[in-house]
């Protein structure tokens, strides 16, 4: 009998370790997926989204630009449409987030006829200057966020929000 013959005990050991390994992997894989998933999800929103807005048609008056992306929420996929207020400052394209810094309503350009040239929040009458700066004495405590922008074939692309760089 040669030494490297597999004994019954060794055979059982190998098999059980093998099976145990599969079981462990079966248990661990979903856990790893859960741990990694949030990271992967961030990535999806992180890309620039192409809009239908032609850069050449922008002026110094803010216009509403819609953009739609797919949001994955656990197993549920849905299309989410967001908006940006977009205008030109010289040659530079500015895109502001419409989300009010008070409690998150959607602000409108000249939404209040009494305050021309300002963004207005219909919820608690918050107001912002055109560059997003919050007007003192109204509820919002900070300026509107800004979107990163890019151009592709003359069309506007919208990226992530970041803190306002204009005020």
């Amino acid at each position: 009998m040669s030494n490297n013959r597999v004994t019954r005990r060794q055979f059982l050991n190998y098999t059980l370790t093998g099976v145990g390994g599969f079981m462990a992997a079966g248990m661990l894989m979903p856990m790893v997926r859960f741990a990694v998933d949030p990271v992967l999800q961030k990535k999806e929103g992180g890309d620039f989204i192409l809009t239908k807005q032609k850069i050449s048609e922008l002026t110094e008056v803010p216009v509403k630009v819609d953009f739609t992306f797919e949001q994955v929420d656990a197993w549920y996929k849905s299309n989410v449409t967001n908006t940006a207020w977009v205008y030109k400052e010289g040659e530079e394209v500015i895109a502001l987030s419409p989300v009010c810094k008070h409690l998150g309503c959607t602000v409108n350009w000249e939404g209040d006829p009494e305050h021309k040239n300002q963004f207005f929040c219909p919820c608690h009458a918050g107001r912002y200057e055109k560059n997003g700066d919050n007007i003192k004495g109204t509820p919002p405590l900070g300026p509107l966020d800004e979107f990163e922008v890019k151009e592709k074939d003359g069309l506007l692309m919208i990226g992530n929000t970041r803190a306002n760089t204009l005020v």
Binding site: H102, G104, H124
Partner: peptide, 12 residues
């Protein structure tokens, strides 16, 4: 529709 209203008036 209610989700859309929520998006517009989230803070109130």
């Amino acid at each position: 529709l209610t989700a859309f209203v929520e998006q517009q008036f989230k803070g109130r």
